[in-house]
């Protein structure tokens, strides 16, 4: 819980400063955009979180986004598949690819970093091969399907503001993920494996299946993210679609309180972490004083300051608590 407070504090601080620096930050249109982008990256972050809780890592998220993001319009437009076949196909595909990572990691005992790094290369290469390196897009069609990515739900009594559909998807995913992680037996096992895989195994837990499930879930959520991304943007370029998104996802998960050493994680924290990243990127465009080309520097500096402040506050609190106890 404390970890979530830290990232929530950072989010509020960044929002406040941006709102003071730009009158447009709190405009309904901008809020909608921020919510939608947070939803898209948040879904990837949740997938990354499951893997990170096991003490692993998934570097293939961006390439999985690319694979699904390109396959969807390619199958729909170029291959003429029906929507009802494409959606299950790409989601199952990403789930299976994730499970394959898990299998390689648990059965062949390969390092997660290595397996998913190969995934990163493999899926992007495959996508470029399949599409012939061509930009694929919906060509203005499939408005109904694209509602999932860019639709808005008018809320009664909210003038000028509508809820982006991906936010609804994120909420559903986050609630399910939260229940899965904190309430189910499987989630407990996942955390146990992250804390001490050897002890979990010696307690009779089939740790291999648990870890495999985490990677499958991460793959599936990356696929879902890729689907929503391409539905939102409208076209995808195999070369760079989703490039580096794994880093945004991992950053969101770690900012949200997932320790890279495994064991702990908070879904709410991950979503807040994703939001911080998106607000920062938004602020760089909105705030006049920040030149666009220092974007990464600003993101890096703010995150560093935020994490350092969080750690310092934690120490002060712990010291005070000790002093009180003594």
């Amino acid at each position: 819980m404390r970890k979530v407070l830290g990232i929530a504090g950072l989010l509020i601080t960044v929002c406040l400063i941006t709102a003071l620096a730009s009158e447009h930050f709190l405009s309904p249109f901008n809020i909608e955009n921020l919510l939608r982008r947070t939803a898209l990256f948040g879904i990837l972050g949740i997938g990354a979180a499951f893997v990170i809780v096991t003490g692993g890592i998934d570097l293939s998220i961006g390439s999985m986004v690319c694979l699904v993001g390109c396959l969807v319009p390619w199958l729909l437009v170029q291959q003429g598949w029906p929507v009802g076949a494409v959606l299950p196909a790409v989601l199952v595909l990403s789930l299976l690819l994730g499970a394959a990572h898990g299998w390689l990691i648990t059965r062949l005992r390969l390092q997660p970093f290595l397996v998913t790094l190969c995934g990163l290369l493999l899926y992007r290469g495959l996508t470029r091969g399949i599409t012939g390196d061509q930009t694929v897009g919906f060509r203005g069609g499939f408005a109904g399907l694209r509602w999932l990515g860019q639709g808005r739900i008018e809320l009664p009594g909210m003038d000028g503001f509508a809820l982006p559909v991906p936010v609804v998807v994120l909420v559903v995913v986050a609630v399910l993920a939260g229940v899965l992680l904190d309430r189910t037996v499987w989630g407990r096992w996942l955390q146990a494996v992250g804390h001490n895989e050897s002890a979990a195994r010696a307690s009779g837990i089939r740790t291999e299946r648990v870890v495999l499930g985490a990677y499958a879930l991460c793959g599936g959520l990356s696929g879902l993210g890729g689907l929503l991304f391409v539905l939102d943007v409208g076209s995808a370029q195999p070369v760079d679609f989703g490039n580096f998104y794994e880093l945004y996802a991992i950053a969101a998960a770690v900012l949200g309180g997932c320790s890279l050493r495994g064991g702990t994680g908070s879904i709410l924290g991950v979503v807040l972490g994703a939001a911080v990243m998106q607000v920062l990127r938004n602020a760089i465009v909105l705030v006049e004083a920040i030149p666009d080309n220092v974007e990464y520097a600003v993101i890096g500096a703010v995150l560093l300051i935020g994490v350092a402040a969080d750690e310092l506050v934690r120490r002060v609190v712990a010291a005070r608590r000790r002093a009180k106890a003594a």
Binding site: F25, N30, L40, V239, N282, L286
Partner: peptide
């Protein structure tokens, strides 16, 4: 003038942010 370094999502976000900042 805004650049996106060929990241599509960023390219779209740039336009959205400009629409926010300069309605």
């Amino acid at each position: 003038t805004l650049t996106d370094q060929f990241d599509r999502a960023k390219g779209k976000a740039n336009v959205e942010d400009v629409l926010s900042r300069h309605p």
